[in-house]
Amino acid sequence: MNAFRLVGDLCHLAAIVLLLLKIWKSRSVAGLSGKSQILFGLVFVTRYLDLVTNFVSPYNTIMKVFFLSSSIATVYLIYTKFKATYDGNHDTFRMEFLLIPCALLAIVVNHEFSPMEILWTFSIYLEAVAILPQLFMISKTGEAETITSHYLFALGSYRGLYIMNWLYRYYYENNFDVIAVVAGIVQTVLYCDFFYLYITKVLQGKKLQLPA
């Protein structure tokens, strides 16, 4: 464990907590893409299948349980409890355009052709693009609530910090996983446009408005 990865995990945790707080306090899921949350849930389910078979550390297990339960809870809140506030008309990104290419790529490009490894690889590829429905929804509505912007900033930062973690592990531990690193770079790059808007607007106290 290094500082980059720890701070990265804490950013990830903060993002999920921020999202739950937003939903709970505003009693609304307005502006949130249920599809992205479904994809994140799928990422955790396919990645943490070894939750009970492969014990790494108490920290690892606790975080996996939290990520799994919170992502499932978020999907539940969006599609049942606060369904009335779900903006389905703007959450129209076709999930199959992400699921099918990621599944095909995971079958073709992986480290080992075994069910667990292919599912892990699928979750890595899917996580890289899972935010697209949310970013697409913001581009359609043209704005995002401030707390949703903070959520996205924390979520984007987590994988950016993981890239630093992979650099660190490459130089000091001679560990390197090209699949995780390439997908992580793609994932972080997808947030760049949002990072620019967040830093130039939200941090200036303005609401996140996309140029019409």
Binding site: R5, D50, N60, M63, F67, H111, R169, E173, N175, A180
Partner: peptide
């Protein structure tokens, strides 16, 4: 280069 070790990450 051992890529399996990345499985200790979240």
């Amino acid at each position: 280069q051992d890529n399996r070790s990345m499985k200790d990450e979240l």
